[in-house]
Write a protein that binds this DNA or RNA. Structure first.
Lengths: 196, 196
DNA sequence: ATGGAGCAACCGAACGTTCGGTCAGCTTAG
DNA sequence: CTAAGCTGACCGAACGTTCGGTTGCTCCAT
């Protein structure tokens, strides 16, 4: 069966392929040859769409960060009781992480070796701090415990959610709703059974 | 001031330097030249102690995994009520992660690109499964909630603890005991304040 | 309908640089 | 003195990128 046409990409579709390969191999361990093989085009063709490897990383990291930051602007994250806002943000983070698994996975492994990575790390820290402020508000109104520093609580909570990109999909059939439930339940109510 | 002597390394001390650089830059993004610069010796001198870059990675990953696995064999992890054993393991994991920060950080970023990394990932999965078995026991005797699958609970709990290597030490003066307390408290009791 | 022009996307070959590693010889600690 | 530890110069392979050229598709004039 002859191949009568060549695969066609644009910047966005190439970024999606790149993210999958970066997720599997790590950004630094992925060569442009490997990326080209995954896309089914030559290495040189990639440079028609992007100026270089880093532009693919930048595009992918932006996808993840744009989505996470947008959560903070949602109505349920900006109005209502602080504790409900924290819950909403946590659920949405889990949902987004499942939806943008590769992009978030690459994001959580950003190191700071380049300006692109450092910008992403800055945005991540700003996101963490915004969550910490929400948690601090919920602590102030007495709905969340205040014996854990809000910055630490935010980091632990976000870490719990974020780490799932490392194992989600590796077995079992847990849906995103059930997963978000588990994360929120453990984060807010803990694993221990209530003593009565 | 003349340098009248050259730094001297052995395999272990070189591994420690390597882990620090691997942690900062990522293993794949760390060149042997950068490693040599960090150690203050020439690149060629490294090969007197190790056969290659991967041997340094293997040594570092083994440090982390040996320590984690040893926790599972401790008396407080093998005897007593299952829920107490889970608590003990969580505390010890946090303590070890602080103590072996660079090694654990490199471990959690292992991808599977080489036999060394795949072995480490296998050992990580076995560790996770052992914790899941402990959690399942505590669920069976009613001390931990059983509406979250034990494998998922284990992954979430370990994820909470493990993620700390990404931010521990980046500000604040939280001691390891207080940190372990925060992790255990959130994992078992959650962030929400009890309703009465 | 057809063929030519134009274009975005693609190609193989080549580039300069960097990579992990090697080697003969030098240095230093015991 | 001796051997462990180290060095600068070097290696072939691979890296990300560039270059001049090709391809397949769409559009438009005839």
């Amino acid at each position: 069966m002859p191949t009568s046409s060549r695969p066609r990409y644009d910047r966005q579709s190439l970024t999606i392929v790149a993210l999958d390969v970066f997720r599997q191999r790590g950004y630094d361990a992925t060569s442009m040859e490997q990326l080209a093989a995954a896309a089914g085009i030559s290495k040189a063709a990639i440079y028609h769409h992007v100026s270089g490897k880093e532009e693919l990383l930048d595009a992918g990291l932006s996808m993840a960060l744009d989505a996470l930051e947008a959560v903070l602007g949602e109505e349920q994250a900006t109005t209502g009781a602080p504790v409900d806002r924290v819950r909403h943000v946590m659920r949405r983070v889990v949902e987004l992480e499942v939806e943008l698994l590769a992009a978030v996975s690459v994001l959580l492994r950003a190191r700071g070796n380049s300006a692109v990575e450092r910008r992403a790390l800055d945005r991540r820290r700003r996101f963490d701090r915004a969550v910490a402020r929400l948690i601090a508000q919920a602590q102030s109104d007495g709905s969340l415990r205040d014996d854990i520093d809000p910055v630490i609580a935010a980091r632990l909570a976000i870490g719990t959610a974020t780490w799932l990109v490392e194992w989600y999909g590796t077995g079992g059939k847990l849906g995103v709703d059930a997963l978000a439930d588990a994360v929120v339940t453990m984060t807010f109510d803990g694993l221990a059974v209530r003593k009565r």
